[in-house]
């Protein structure tokens, strides 16, 4: 499939019956949707399931895509809804998903290839601290910080995706950053002590 083909064109082809076109959309976005889901849910298995459900729901609702928004925003909205649904189930159980992953050892991250073993260890430790800190955020704060930092959505796009006011997006972002700073300092991140 031609990489110059836009997502919107691929959707048009998929609606016309070209199954390979939607397969190309999956290949383009599956990693980012998975990362988004993992950032919100904090557990590999849940993230994989949420990402799969996202694409399946998108495929089923291809005919409903009007082209008013970007395909990426459309997929993000579906993915976030999937994650929110799963979070609510988890909150009923009074459990946060990231705590599960923490008990199981967490996701193993790939180390930068050109760094020394010491820097690799430091980087690994730092990423683990960040992962725990994000996982310890309340779900509503985790959603906005992940949508902003992972997907670089604008405040307005986040507001549309989560269906909350624009000012709420800003306030939640500020609160999330503030809590993350405190948690990183608590975990001994020296660079955060500016």
């Amino acid at each position: 499939m031609d990489t110059a083909t836009s997502d919107e064109q691929l959707v048009e082809r998929a609606v016309a019956g070209d199954a390979d076109a939607f397969g190309e959309i999956v290949r383009r976005w599956e990693r980012r949707i998975y990362a988004l889901a993992y950032g919100i849910l904090g557990r590999e298995e849940d993230a994989r399931d949420a990402a799969q459900e996202t694409f399946i729901n998108a495929f089923r609702n291809l005919s409903n895509f009007r082209g008013e928004a970007k395909v990426s925003s459309w997929l993000h909205r579906i993915a976030v809804n999937q994650c929110i649904t799963r979070q609510r189930r988890a909150s009923v159980r009074s459990e946060t998903s990231l705590e599960y992953e923490q008990e199981e050892g967490g996701q193993q991250f790939a180390a930068p290839p050109a760094s020394s073993p010491l820097k690799q260890a430091e980087g690994r430790e730092r990423r683990e601290v960040v992962r725990k800190a994000v996982g310890a955020l309340p779900p509503e704060l985790r959603e906005v910080i992940v949508l902003k930092e992972f997907e670089d959505l604008t405040f307005q796009e986040i507001a549309d995706t989560l269906q909350i006011p624009l000012s709420t997006v800003k306030s939640r972002l500020y609160t999330a950053l503030k809590q993350l700073r405190m948690k990183l300092e608590k975990y001994g991140m020296e660079a955060a002590r500016v």
Partner: peptide, 18 residues
């Protein structure tokens, strides 16, 4: 600094995304 840490985490997450 917080954003930088979250960005590193995201980059590694994308690398290891199945």
């Amino acid at each position: 600094f917080v954003r930088e840490g979250v960005g590193e985490w995201r980059a590694d997450l994308l690398k290891g995304a199945p």
